[in-house]
Amino acid sequence: MNDHSLEPDLDEGSVVARAQDGDLSAFEHLVNTYQGRLFRLAYRMLKDRGDAEDIVQETLTISWRRLPMLTDVNAFGGWIYRLATNKCLDLLRKRSSHAADITDPEDIHAASETESLRPPAGIDPAHEAEWSAEQEGLTAVLDTLPPMQRACWLLREMHDRSYTEIGATLKMSPTAVRGTLARARHHIAEGMSQWR
């Protein structure tokens, strides 16, 4: 195997370019850089470890196959987030077509009372104590947002993606992203105060 390590200060564009040339150690570096981020996004979108792991695995595997088609090496981050986000949204659509849907945003407060108000399962008990009421409220209300709003909020607030990039991912203008984000914040802030 080619196990030559990469230079420590290597810029991401160069890592991506080498991976495009088929360099496995460069690709592995990208896998290690992005798998945690994509998992956190997918987990907060889907609330299911197994589904989130599947999304991470599928997204990164597809990225290997499609990498040669990426024209701007500096756009890898946005591109991989876009692939993962859209996979999450597809899965949520599939789920809701199977289950009775709660799509009315006004139902969120009612829903938030019955849905999981606890920290995610599988969390360390010692950790659980530190889990503040504020965060609990936030994640509980977050789960009740319509998927597009949730994606928009997570990409911006948890992952620092730009308005332009989020717009490209969710197929809306940057201005529409701003609007969606404001509505998401409004819903969460209101939900949190009612939840308490």
Partner: peptide, 23 residues
């Protein structure tokens, strides 16, 4: 909104360091 801003910041921090939030 200030409460939301604070909760957002700490959730972000916590998710980043939470060993359970890794694949």
């Amino acid at each position: 909104l200030q409460r939301l801003s604070e909760a957002t910041r700490s959730l972000r921090e916590q998710d980043l360091n939470d060993p359970a939030l890794k694949p």
